[in-house]
């Protein structure tokens, strides 16, 4: 019990703080929290693919958009409730993930990236131009609040807790996957595919599994997004969204799910925070780019790591001294 607590301390703190927050926040701040929660689910799904599956994907927004559009389209044509749409969301996004994984069997390394990019562009084009189903560029307006088996979640607070439920489930499932045989094999493959194959691990089925699961969770996040905005349109789901997701994963650390949650929180709140600075008005988005470069530099360059170590050790020394002083007193 104690070890579990220790291992997942950060996660627990985040959950507790977020679940208590609605008491203190107004609608605007709540909306930011909801966006952050959705970003967490989305980013964690990408982390599974990138951190554990070792695949850098430039097109993760595609699954997000498929999730959003599946529930939107089903509501538009059949007026179905969210709970009814949920299974189709899982199925359609899962299928998409599966489809994407198929070409990957023969493709390795950098080529994977271009395939994910192309895939995302194709999905976006289909949504943009399949007017009878998706209404194309007009978008689907008026998507209602989430309806769970007849109970409608009228307030945003209720919706927030639903989202948090999914955040918690995602974290638990991701961690379980990573520590299972599946996860170990995946990490073996991403570390050294040739060695893994030599050990008898068949690469292809694992690729399929990781893509499918990753896609499904991204789809769940997307479906919630559709009901949050009550509006979907194709241009929201562009490659910038994919890059923002990569930023969130990167800040937290590949393979580190609680870190991803922090990254998602940070990068959702940062642009809102920067809104208050007049002179940065036009340049807010530079923050995303800068974050990537700086985090990469700190963690993965020699001078950067030296700097990080120096600061951390300085900080630790301070802590130890405080502890020692406290003990003496």
């Amino acid at each position: 019990m104690k070890t579990i607590l220790k291992k997942h301390l950060l996660f627990l703190i985040i959950i507790v703080v977020m679940c208590v927050a609605p008491v203190f926040t107004n609608a605007y701040q709540l909306r930011i929290l909801i966006s952050a929660a959705l970003a967490m689910i989305f980013a964690m799904s990408l982390n599974l693919l990138m951190g554990i599956g070792g695949t850098v994907s430039f097109g993760h927004a595609a699954f997000y958009s498929i999730g959003a559009y599946t529930t939107a389209v089903l509501w538009y044509h059949f007026r179905t409730a969210y709970s009814t749409n949920f299974i189709p969301v899982l199925l359609v996004t899962g299928l998409a993930g599966l489809l994407l994984s198929l070409p990957m069997s023969r493709i390795t390394g950098r080529y994977v990236t271009i395939i994910t990019l192309s895939f995302a562009e194709i999905v976006n084009l289909i949504i943009k131009n399949w007017d009878p189903v998706t209404l194309g560029q007009m978008g689907i307006v008026g998507i209602p609040s989430v309806n769970l088996f007849g109970h409608v979640l009228k307030s945003k607070t209720e919706f927030f807790y639903l989202t948090m439920f999914f955040v918690i489930m995602t974290y638990i499932i991701m961690n379980w996957l990573v520590n299972s045989k599946l996860g170990r094999n995946l990490r073996a493959i991403s570390n050294d595919a040739i060695a893994a194959e030599a050990m008898g691990i068949k690469i292809f089925p694992y690729k399929v599994i990781v893509f499918t699961i990753s896609a499904v969770f991204a789809g769940i996040a997307g479906s919630l997004y559709a009901h949050l905005m009550s509006y979907v349109e194709p241009s929201t789901f562009n490659s910038n969204l994919s890059f923002q997701c990569i930023s969130m994963v990167v800040i937290g650390g590949l393979g580190n799910f609680s870190g991803t949650m922090v990254g998602a929180l940070f990068l959702t709140i940062l642009p809102e925070y920067l809104r208050r600075f007049e002179f940065l008005f036009k340049y807010r988005m530079i923050a995303y780019g800068l974050v990537l470069v700086i985090v990469m530099w700190i963690n993965h360059s020699i001078p950067g790591t030296k700097l990080k170590n120096a600061v951390t050790s300085r900080f630790n020394a301070l802590l130890h001294r405080k502890n020692a002083e406290a003990q003496e007193a």
Binding site: V17, T25, N26
Partner: peptide, 15 residues
């Protein structure tokens, strides 16, 4: 970093 984030959230708008 988590504390920083929460701080930002609070100061983003009045409470």
């Amino acid at each position: 970093s988590l504390l920083l984030v929460i701080l930002m959230l609070i100061t983003t708008v009045g409470c």
